[in-house]
């Protein structure tokens, strides 16, 4: 194509593209903070880990009654101890996977591989959030059932409910849980959607080339 050759000729003319930077202009740049997607994703994943760990432990330290109840459950029941170990095991596994995938992001890989590494990290965060949302959803439902069972006043009230009222009660609890999970899920979709919009578009474009 003639035009592109014309462009090539002009492109490679030895003319400065921009004001030539001196070494003194470059030195300060080395110590500036990066605002790359990989770094933002790293901060988000750290915030994510800390947030969900705090959500699970804050009630334990702030509420005496909650702590007593949890302690009595755990000392008496092997099932809950196993469950507890399993929960922390899963969190540790996610921490390991996240750090491993962050380390694998390398700007010197080819473009496609770099994009894949970033998307893999995003996927791990996605599964971590999904896992926590499912646990949160189950906890709301289970917590309500336990509260009804263990609180005589509440269980007395519920026992006077008609079948229709009980059904309505279940529907409300379930509805609230689903709404809670959905709102948080939508928030994440928006957050990652905005952050990775361009990356996804470029990755799809590269993938399209290989079809």
């Amino acid at each position: 194509m003639e035009e592109l050759e014309l462009l090539k000729k002009d492109w490679n003319k030895d003319k400065p593209e921009h004001k030539k930077l001196a070494a003194t202009d470059i030195y300060p740049m080395l110590h500036k903070k990066s605002s790359s997607i990989a770094k933002t994703l790293f901060y988000i994943s750290i915030a994510e880990l800390v947030f969900w760990i705090l959500v699970s432990i804050i009630p334990y330290f702030t509420s005496d009654s909650y702590r007593k109840r949890v302690e009595s459950i755990y000392t008496n029941d092997t099932f809950f101890t196993v469950l507890n170990i399993l929960t922390y095991g899963i969190v540790l596994l996610f921490i390991y996977l996240l750090f491993k995938s962050h380390k694998a992001i390398s700007v010197t890989d080819n473009a496609k591989k770099l994009m894949e590494s970033i998307l893999k990290t995003r996927k791990i965060i996605k599964y971590y959030v999904l896992y926590n949302l499912i646990i949160a959803g189950i906890s709301i439902v289970a917590g309500t059932l336990v509260a009804i069972n263990q609180n005589p006043e509440l269980s007395n009230t519920v026992s006077h409910f008609s079948d229709k009222q009980k059904l309505l009660g279940c529907a409300i609890v379930l509805g609230v849980s689903i709404a809670f999970v959905l709102i948080i899920w939508l928030f994440y979709r928006l957050l990652y959607g905005l952050l990775l919009k361009r990356l996804n578009r470029n990755y799809n474009e590269l993938k399209k080339l290989e079809v």
Binding site: S35, S36, I37, A38, T40, V107, T108, D109, A111, L114, M115, I118, L195, L199, N202
Partner: peptide, 10 residues
């Protein structure tokens, strides 16, 4: 340079 421009840059 290209990786930064098409992948990492916000």
């Amino acid at each position: 340079g290209l990786n930064t421009a098409i992948t990492l840059y916000r």
